Amino acid sequence: MKAMILRTPGGLDNLQLQEIADPGQPGFGEIRVAIHATSLNFHDLLVADGSIPTADQHIMMADGAGVVEAVGDGVTEFNVGDRVVSCFFPQWPDGLPDSHVSNFTLTPGDGAQGFAAEYVVRPASHFTLAPEGWSHVEAATITTSGLTAWRALVNDAQIKAGDTVLTLGTGGVSVTALQIAKSMGARVIITSSSDEKLERARALGADETINYREQPDWGKVVQALTRNNGADIVIEVGGPGTMAQSIDAVRTGGHIALIGVLTGREGTIPTSKLMAKQARIQGLTVGNRRQQQEFIRALNQTRIRPVISDTFTLATLPDAFRHQQSAAHFGKICVEW
C-alpha cells in the first residue's frame, strides 16, 4: 500500500510517497480502516518541517477519515461499511486530562504512526463514527481543529446564547469556532489581515470583523464594539504575540482559550492586567473521545458543514504544506485519496 513517509531529519523535501507493507487483518478489539482523507493542522506542519523530531520512516498526519473494512473479535461499536474518523488522543477516552495526555507519544502522526496511508489497523477505540452524510474530506476536519474549537467553546468556556466570542484569524479552528458559536446564538467578532477573508467570514455569520494590520490595537476595538464590556470568550490561536491584545479584549471575568502558538512559544504576558480583569486563560490541546462523540452528535443536529479551502492528493502533500505556510487558505486544507 502507499503511505506518505517522513525521512529524518524532517523537512518538506524529505516527504516521500512510498510502498509499505499492508497492515493485514484486525486482531481482537481492532478494526481495519481504508483511509480516504486527512486534513492539515499546524501541529502536522511542525512535524513535517522537522520542528518536532520523529523517527525515520514516519507515517504522517494526525487526522484520518475512512471506511471500516474488517472488524476483529470483541468489537461491537463498529460494523463493516461504517464511516469513521480518528481520535487525536487515542489514550484519552473521557474525563479530565492527566499525565498520559501531557505529551504526544501516542498521537498519530507524532509519537505514533499517522494516517497518511491507504489502510490502517488500530484498536476500535481510536475512532468514532463520522457525522451522517459527510464526505471523508469533511470528516477529516474533526479530529484536531474541529474538536479543539468545540471543546474550547462548549466544554471549557461553557458558551451560552448571547455571549460575545472573539476568534483570531481564519484558519480551521477559528472558522469552526465561528460556526459553532453562531449555531449557539452567540455574537462573533473575528480578526484577519485580509479584507477578502473578513468578507467571507461575514458570509458565514460573523457579526463584526477587524483587520488587525489596519487596527493593531484590536483589543481596544473589541472593547468599543462591546460598549466597553469586552468579549466573553476569546479563541486565542496566536500565543505570545497576540495574548496582550486578547487580554485587552476579554471582559472582566471572561475566558481566554489558549489554543495555538503561531507567534512563538514564549513571550511577555501583562499579568497585572490579567489579574485586574480576573480573567481565565485555559490552555488546551484538542480533546477526548467522549467530547468528539458529543461534537459529532451536535453536528448531526445543527447541520454545520466544515469550510474546505483547498484539497490536495496524497502524492502532493508537500505542496499542501507549502500552501499552508503561505497562509492563503480560509478554513481547512485537506488531502484525499
Rank of each mutant, 00 (worst) to 15 (best):
Q91W: 05
L96N: 14
A140N: 10
P270H: 09
C334W: 04
V221I: 15
T302E: 00
G283A: 13
G205H: 08
A177W: 02
D195V: 06
A224M: 08
T170D: 02
G114W: 06
S192C: 10
V307I: 14
H136W: 12
G29M: 03
T285W: 07
I233S: 03
Q245D: 12
G146H: 05
I296P: 05
L258N: 12
G50A: 09
D248W: 08
L166M: 04
L106T: 15
N211I: 11
A157Q: 06
I259P: 02
R187P: 01
F42L: 00
A48C: 13
A21H: 12
G253P: 05
Q301M: 11
P23A: 12
T285A: 12
Q301W: 13
R290P: 11
V173E: 01
V250W: 00
N211F: 04
E77G: 07
S39N: 04
V121E: 07
D232R: 03
M1D: 07
I52M: 08
Q25C: 14
M61K: 10
S183R: 02
I281K: 05
G95S: 12
E266P: 03
T313D: 08
G162N: 08
V33Y: 01
T148W: 03
R251E: 09
A328D: 09
D94P: 03
G239I: 14
K273C: 03
T313G: 11
L129Y: 04
D22T: 11
